[in-house]
Nucleic acid binder design. Structure first.
Lengths: 344, 344
DNA sequence: ACCGTCACCGCAAACGTTTGCGGAATATGA
DNA sequence: TCATATTCCGCAAACGTTTGCGGTGACGGT
């Protein structure tokens, strides 16, 4: 009736044997007679015995739980990553506890220590946008807790990482815009605290250079517009009203791209005839706008899987065995839609 | 260096006192001299002592963890619910472990027992679409594990629930369509296994009746179209090509509404002049389509908060205290957009 | 000098499980 | 018949923490 789950002790008492024997019987240890085994397993089944995983954790000093810290669950990309993590963790016998930093550095620090206090066996992290100091990671990593970064990684910590090929993705999409005939391609950049912002910027630059187009700082939108649709819209409107406006825009992510699109529509530009738009991430809604937005697909599920695999590998490594940190780079996929080509 | 966190025993040994005293000193127990307290707390600080929560859980037979089972994390609505749950759980000192059923009954059963095995203190559930048997809930509930349902609730289990006022939301949105002058309003219904499908249908019927419009089974779309955009589109196309097509559609959710919209656009209908569309849930993308989709906002964050509060209240109730199951009904908000009115 | 009070502290059990070791009973060998 | 294996099982410690209870020493009062 109450939350009194049956324990090994109960079974032992009822059968008049010791808990040791019950424990061994349940795991089919050779040093237990078949009769005893049967008696034990029968009773265990009858009472629906479930081993107390907390006691187990204490005994083994292993919680079989991994912690995940992400900026926000409601972001489509991150929720697909979580699915990937769960997929691997679940089948390897781990529980997943997620916490979100809400893009706040302070909250991220708290989450990190909370997970450590909860004795997770390892942590998967995608940094908040605010994070520029890494002491909290350093601290728990030094303490021996395995960490794997994904997407928003931190170069200062020597551990495994999983990222997408931001450089190549940005290069491909910019090249695509160039090949479509656009002559003056602007870029809405991401926060400089994230390496991926730099990588995407570099990919953009490479494509320009390769096609003998010069990089023009005056059509680069910087600041906090990356995850603020309204701001992205405003800045784009300003840019479109300038003397020498661009005829295309590659935005660091899809949300920003949406702001860009609204600005262009409001200005009366035809998309993609007068103005082309491309984003990054392949968020769910990009297929639903009118026109649909050209973007770069990030394999979120795959990323979650890879990150979880790397982490679990490290968790389950033998004491003496040294695991070399490894960085996996996942390929992106260019998704061409109506915001950059006419007939699609 | 290794994952050897400092323990109470270590501190006790170093100070030459017993673990009992250390434990008491750390929680400012009166029976410990100020000097000892200082020595202990100083050392604890120096070594960055963190109580082992697993040992604590074992001692208290309480894990301070709550489990959440949802159909899919990637659904915008559910991810906002999780945020709400986390918000409350976090500040009450609970960890949250989420698992998704992927709309599969079998998976839901597995998840339920996995959480129970992991000794969570309580479970929050939103049922999968497939679920029609409730033995798994019954089993763990009888065992004394608190359960609270949210959104997709189960009437067969006598426990607390949190839902939105599906009936009223559907009534309001249907009434809105009627008031906009639409004469023949179709309905894309949800799976009959979910009570909310029935409630929304009833709200729809009430609005019709109130305005002397007759309920016509031939413009009710049933089946698996509710979460399948393609199917929703196909069925709508059929309906639009029938002899007496509707001039508006209230879809059970936004994804289906999107399928409806695509069908209408393909058919060449102008929205909202020739055909109006309304959805349910206020998913992120509904504001981004062209035109934006009229829908009913479900307060996901609030729902998560309420559900977590109810659960924690039950978890922390005294042994003898009897908590009466309670059903909270959250108000919805009609969001009027371009898919149902011209000038907006 | 004796007793009671008080402040402070340690012992040991408990939460549920695993596991090295030793012991008893039985079986096998010569 | 005795020595040696073999089979089966229990004891106790361990994981880290909390807590009721009892104990020690100091102190003040008579």
């Amino acid at each position: 009736m109450k939350n009194s789950q049956i324990t090994i002790k109960d079974i032992a008492k009822e059968l008049g044997i010791s808990s040791s024997t019950v424990s061994r019987a349940l795991k089919d240890h050779p040093n237990v007679s078949p009769e005893t085994k049967k008696a034990v397993t029968d009773l265990a089944e009858k009472y629906n015995y479930q081993p107390n995983s907390i006691a187990l954790s204490l005994r083994r000093s292993k919680s079989n739980t991994i912690g995940v810290i992400i900026p926000e669950i409601v972001h489509f990309f991150f929720s697909t990553v979580i699915s990937g993590i769960e997929d691997i963790a679940y089948s390897a016998g781990y529980s997943v506890i997620v916490s979100q930093s809400n893009e706040s550095y302070d909250r991220e620090v708290m989450d990190t220590f909370a997970l450590s206090k909860n004795r997770v066996d390892g942590i998967l992290i995608s940094m908040s946008r605010e994070t520029t100091r890494y002491d909290h990671f350093e601290t728990i990593h030094k303490r021996g807790l395995p960490i794997v970064f994904f997407d928003r990684v931190c170069d200062a910590i020597n551990c495994s990482k999983v990222v997408v090929d931001d450089f190549d993705g940005a290069y491909q999409v910019t090249k695509h815009l160039i090949q479509q005939g656009y002559k003056r391609i602007a870029h809405l950049a991401g926060p400089e605290s994230l390496i991926l912002s730099k990588h995407r910027m570099d990919g953009y630059k490479k494509a320009l250079k390769e096609h003998n187009m010069e990089f023009d700082e005056s059509i680069i939108l910087r600041g906090r517009a990356a995850d603020n649709e309204m701001l992205a819209k405003e800045l784009t409107t300003q840019l479109l009203n300038s003397d020498n406006p661009p005829d295309a825009m590659f935005a660091i992510n899809d949300r920003a791209a949406l702001g860009v699109m609204k600005a262009a529509k409001e200005k009366g530009l035809r998309i993609p005839q007068d103005f082309a738009i491309a984003g990054f991430s392949n968020w769910e809604f990009t297929a639903m706008t009118d026109p649909a937005i050209t973007t770069v697909d990030q394999p979120g599920f795959k990323m979650g899987q890879e990150a979880a695999k790397l982490l679990i590998r490290e968790i389950e490594a033998d004491e003496d065995e040294i695991i070399e940190p490894e960085t996996r780079i996942l390929k992106t996929d260019l998704i061409i839609r109506g915001s950059s080509v006419v007939a699609v």
